[in-house]
Amino acid sequence: MSTIDVPNAQDLVEYRVDRILEEANTDTRIVVLARQDGVLDTFPIWVGAAEGHAIKLALDTMITPRPMSHDLIKSFAEHLDITIQRVIITDVKSSTYYATVHVANKGVERTIDARPSDAISLALRAPCPIYITRLPFFCARGTQGR
C-alpha cells in the first residue's frame, strides 16, 4: 500500500453532509458539505449519480431490502471488529478528489485510500466524523469548479 500523508489534527475541519443536489441534464450529483462548528462554509463535491444515490440513502436513513455496497463494507467492519474512526477529504488535483478512511482494530490503525463518495457514504453509515484538511487546495477551490 502506498504511503498516505496523514494531516495533523489542527489542519482538520469537521464537516457534515448538508444536502445532495441534482445537476440538471447530467449524470452527476453535488454533495454539499457544511462546516460543523457553526462557521458558515460549504464545500461541494461532484459525484456520479450512483455514488450520490448511495449517499442519499444513508442521509435519509433509508432501509433497503438488501444491503447496499457500503452497508456490506460496514458489515465487514462489524464482523471483523474494525472501527471506522473518521474520514478525511485530503486533496483535490485536476478535478479528482482524494479521501482517506481511518480504521482501527485492536489498536492497529490503518489508513485506506478512497474516493470521497465512498468515504462519505461509509461515514454516514458508520457513523463517524467527516473532516476536510485545511491545506492550500482550500484557498484555490474557488476557482476549482469541479
Partner: peptide, 29 residues
C-alpha cells in the same frame, strides 16, 4: 463494478469494491 474486473480495467481511483478489498487487505482478511 463487475465489468471492470472482468476486463481487468484499473481505474485511476479505487472504486467501491476496490476500497472494500483494501479494507479487508489492511487486516489480512
Amino acid at each position: 463494478a463487475i465489468s471492470m474486473s472482468l476486463e481487468n480495467v484499473t481505474p485511476p481511483r479505487p472504486m467501491t469494491h476496490d476500497f472494500m478489498k483494501s479494507l479487508l487487505d489492511a487486516y489480512n482478511a
